[in-house]
Design a protein around this nucleic acid. Structure first.
Length: 423
RNA sequence: GGAGGAAUGGCAGAGUGGUCGAAUGCGGCAGUCUUGAAAACUGUUGAGGGUCACACCUCCGGGGGUUCGAAUCCCUCUUCCUCCGCCA
């Protein structure tokens, strides 16, 4: 959520910036500023009314104390009108403030100046590419075929137990997945992130805090009986650990990593691109979250990008890094880098990580602040990234490491797996 | 699930109807002292709205009510603690 003050002072600049998202923000920003002005004028009027009745109350109190009950009762009669007026003004104020809030929730984050223009993922800007794309033999298979051949992932079983998009990992497949989780967590804790195991369900306030609500209500599983949401990413519970906090300067940066299953309804997805592990309703992910001083957040973003690069380098997977264009940028992000692994057998790139700076957009909703060098409280910057999303990494390993005699295990994972090949 | 108790500023913790936005301690900040640091001492220090700046308004878990006036009384919700029951 943008700060009102920012909108008041930079309306034109925001409109220009949001054009990168291919939206014309003029109408909504004008509506917001109108509501803001209306809210303030009601507030001023209400303040005056309250000031007057406060004053009268004090006088009445003093009159009672000095035994002048009769005069006090005369003043009492005067307060009735003020009470009605302030009650009505209070209701108006609430209605206006609520309408204003609703509008503010509709405005996405301002894209960073480096965000390229564009409307779809085809307009994303490739900024880095590394790793050799292996030349596979003629019989190379996509991962869902490999999964069946070696009996390590069973999609049909998941359909029976739950439904499509809930695979069952078996044997060495399950072990490889567990190995990847441990390996990622180890890499992240080595880099100074504190490991946490957060709840897998969150309340409504948390959903609003990180921006999943109200914008992406339909993407989350909602447990209606208890009004809780299954998390679509560990970003939600982990960032919300500090909702409402006033952190001290010396605690920054705050760095967390956590492994969680993630649940997404993925309403509207279909077709070949959702085959196998490409798009699931439940998947595992290891996430990193940072809370930063605004002066350091972009440096921190670069650090996170380098960190993920380093992991992919160790796994010896061919990958590229994209700077998301305005049209593809998430609602809450100011700047996002996507990582994609090349899936040789499918001949396409698979997104395996997304690293973003949200600047104050989430912090403003979270009321996550710190005391700065001058003792003034200001909003912190929040960032997060996947390090990494499991299924597609698994798919990338299966497809790129396949041989006619089995799937080799990347060297760094062998100690975690306890075997060198799936055959 | 049953019975009680509690929720106050960054933290701890007073405050039970009228200068209480709130004592005190810790922490933070500034200063004195010191070669420097620590200790000690002195001062200062909640958040939000509003204003050019004041004034002024709001906030003592959330919401509602009583009253001229509520941190303080009533209702309700949430959370936490203690005891009992049940259970991984």
């Amino acid at each position: 959520m943008l700060q009102l003050q920012t909108i008041r002072e930079n309306k034109e600049r925001i409109i220009t910036a949001l054009k990168k998202r291919n939206i014309d923000a003029e109408p909504i920003l004008s509506a917001i500023l109108d509501l803001d002005e209306k809210r303030r004028s009601i507030q001023t009027e209400l303040d005056g009314t309250l000031a007057e009745s406060n004053k009268l109350s004090k006088e009445i109190g003093m009159l009672f104390k000095s035994g002048k009950a009769k005069e006090a009762n005369t003043l009492k009669a005067q307060t009735a009108g003020l009470k009605d007026a302030s009650k009505q003004l209070g209701e108006e104020l609430n209605a206006t403030a609520e309408a204003l809030q609703e509008q503010l929730y509709q405005v996405p984050n301002i894209p960073h100046e480096s965000v390229p223009t564009g409307s779809t993922d085809e307009d994303n800007e490739e900024i880095f590419r590394e790793g050799e794309i292996p030349s596979l033999s003629d019989g190379a298979l996509p991962h869902w075929e490999l999964a069946k051949k070696y009996d390590i992932i069973d999609f049909e079983l998941g359909v029976k137990v739950t439904g499509a998009g809930f695979p069952v990992y078996k044997g060495k497949g399950a072990r490889l997945q567990r190995a990847l989780i441990s390996y990622f967590l180890d890499k992240n804790t080595e880099a100074g992130y504190t490991e946490v195991q957060p709840p897998l369900m969150v309340n409504e306030a948390s959903g609003y805090g990180t921006g999943q609500l109200p914008d992406k209500e339909g993407q989350m599983y909602h447990v209606q009986a208890d009004d809780l949401y299954l998390i679509p990413t560990a970003e939600v519970p982990i960032t919300n650990l500090h909702r409402g906090d006033m952190v001290s300067l010396k605690d920054l940066p705050i760095k967390y990593t956590g492994y969680t299953p993630c649940f997404r309804r993925e309403a509207g997805s279909y077709g070949a691109h959702v085959r196998g592990l490409n798009r699931l309703h439940q998947f595992d992910k290891v996430e990193v979250v940072r809370i930063e001083h605004p002066d350091n957040s972009y440096q921190a973003l670069d650090t996170m990008v380098e960190h993920v690069k380093n992991i992919l380098r160790e796994l010896k997977l061919p990958y590229r890094v994209l700077r998301l264009c305005g049209g593809d940028l998430g609602f809450t992000a100011a700047l996002t880098f996507d990582f994609e692994v090349f899936s040789t057998a499918q001949d396409r790139w698979l997104e395996i990580s997304s690293v973003s700076n949200f600047e104050t957009f989430q912090a403003n909703r979270l009321k996550l602040r710190f005391k700065d060098e001058n003792g003034k409280s200001q909003l912190a910057h929040t960032l997060n990234g996947s390090a990494l999303a499991l299924p597609r990494v698994l798919a990338g390993i299966m497809e790129n490491y396949q041989t006619p005699n089995g799937i080799r295990i990347p060297e760094v994972l062998v100690p975690y797996c306890g075997f060198k090949v799936i055959e």
